[in-house]
Nucleic acid binder design. Structure first.
Lengths: 188, 188
DNA sequence: CGCGCTAGACTGAGCGCTCAGTCAAGCAAT
DNA sequence: ATTGCTTGACTGAGCGCTCAGTCTAGCGCG
């Protein structure tokens, strides 16, 4: 990882988050990264290629934060709660990065290739969903919907925490409470 | 509402939903609407002005669908459930419009002026939130978070219903169930 | 009824400009 | 001398938007 490459990615994160992808010309990126036009295209084959790399970078940072201390042998609830906690904490600590990642996930700027590659990072949690089904502690609802709800409620909790600038004990309380609400909803 | 204006808006909805705003040049819109370049700018002062109008149009259609049969005098729960039901039903019936509206809400393409104007449409529900606070049936959670959670869970339920192509009784059951989950989570 | 006229919706070539991406020249390090 | 990174003026495709001009429906008048 050369220094120049990092500079470009950091400048891109900042500008993309600020103005969006289509409103951020490469000219502004090179200006912000203090390099020249040509150098950008030495490191990335196109602007879209750069967007892919920014996405992978952010996804990797988030996944690393979650994977750290992951209770491989814990109960399903413990593991889901761990992800919940780490995810929201990361979002609050890096709100610019979090919002950009959210936007990238939703948009179709990111190539399907990059999306696929980002899934490998989640291998540590690959047994979670099958196990959740087996334990059968959920209400009579499809697993797909339970997962989708988890994502939606977790993201809503993160947005709220960022907007309200929660920290320390207030943040911890909020995370625990939001998880309780989720768990109370889906378990019978 | 002239026919040409409607043509332009319908063409825009289709193309924006398909390729996004920045990937839809005005040349494609006029092609799709079977008019010429200049006509578009007779009806809308700019491309951004057009986006605003598309947003207002969709928001209005959705609000009209929800306002119809709204139980003004019902309990808080009844009224929230009514909105829940109508919203998801509208999304399932018009998935292209629903997805585009979601994107527009999230993005910053829509001017703050247009956003403000769209709030007037919701006046029929203006007493809902104050009443919800008074009744105090919620858990010890901030009202803002309860509202944000409602939006998030309702949208997740809609996405799931669209993706799974639910209809008729299966759809009704899903809507009721998803509302139950929300209600179980936030009430103590 | 028929003619002349007008209003204004519509047209589309083309303007000015921005953009992503190129490439020949320069430079520093070996 | 050679290699490989860096530079930034340059390119041409594509964009939003304009405007001088066309066309037609419909009105007033003899």
């Amino acid at each position: 990882m050369s220094d120049t490459r990092t500079q470009i990615i950091e400048a891109s994160i900042e500008l993309f988050a600020e103005s969006g992808f289509w409103n951020t010309p490469t000219s502004k990126i090179v200006q912000n990264a203090e390099i020249s036009t040509g150098t950008l295209f030495n490191y990335f084959k196109s602007k879209n290629g750069l967007i892919d790399e920014v996405f992978l970078q952010l996804q990797q940072e988030l996944t690393a934060a979650i994977a750290e201390g992951y209770p491989e042998t814990g109960t399903v609830k413990e593991r889901v709660e761990h992800i919940w906690f780490r995810y929201i904490t990361w979002g609050v600590r890096f709100p610019v990065r979090y919002r950009l990642l959210q936007q990238l996930k939703m948009s179709d700027f990111v190539s399907s290739d990059a999306r696929e590659r980002s899934w490998y990072e989640w291998s540590f949690a690959s047994t979670l969903i099958p196990e959740a089904i087996e334990t059968g502690l959920y209400r009579d609802v499809s697993v797909k919907f339970v997962v989708q709800l988890a994502f939606a409620q977790r993201d809503a909790a993160t947005d709220y925490a960022i907007a309200s600038q929660l920290a320390d004990t207030a943040l911890t309380k909020h995370i625990t409470r939001s998880f309780e609400i989720y768990w109370a909803g889906i378990t019978s």
